[in-house]
Design a protein around this nucleic acid. Structure first.
Length: 113
DNA sequence: GCGATGACTCCTA
DNA sequence: CTAGGAGCCATCG
């Protein structure tokens, strides 16, 4: 087989999106992770932005616990007045995640793989 | 092809 | 604490 330079593979190996979602699924309830950490565990260190963009493409009703992904400083990536923000915050609270002053303490920020 | 935008992060002042 | 700049990738006009 001669590899073409402009060959776009959709299904060739698991796409980065799939890996990212898979990593997110490994986050246990009661814990959270940052976009950068997800990127690192997915082998895409430094591509936190790509992780965020991938999350935006995640369809609703998915099994992926997207609400457990926060910014590096422990804050939710959505505007505080946004509906998504309230939804995510509520989801986290229901799982027992402590949110102090609008952000999650580092003690819950990382989990042991 | 380029600039702007987006569920980001880091460094410096 | 806030502000600005740079780096990263994919999508859109």
């Amino acid at each position: 087989m001669v590899p073409s330079a402009s060959e776009q593979n959709e299904d060739s190996s698991i796409s980065r999106e799939q890996i990212i979602w898979q990593v997110v699924c490994t986050i246990p309830p009661g814990r959270v992770a940052s976009y950068s950490q997800i990127a690192r565990l997915a082998g895409l260190q430094g591509l936190a932005r790509f992780v965020g963009r991938t999350m935006s493409q995640l369809p609703e009703g998915s099994d992926v616990p997207w609400h457990r992904v926060l910014k590096q400083d422990g804050r939710i990536a959505f505007p505080p007045d946004s509906n998504r923000f309230l939804h995510q915050k509520r989801r986290l609270t229901e799982e027992g995640v402590l949110i102090k002053n609008g952000r999650v303490p580092m003690s819950q920020f990382r989990w042991e793989p």
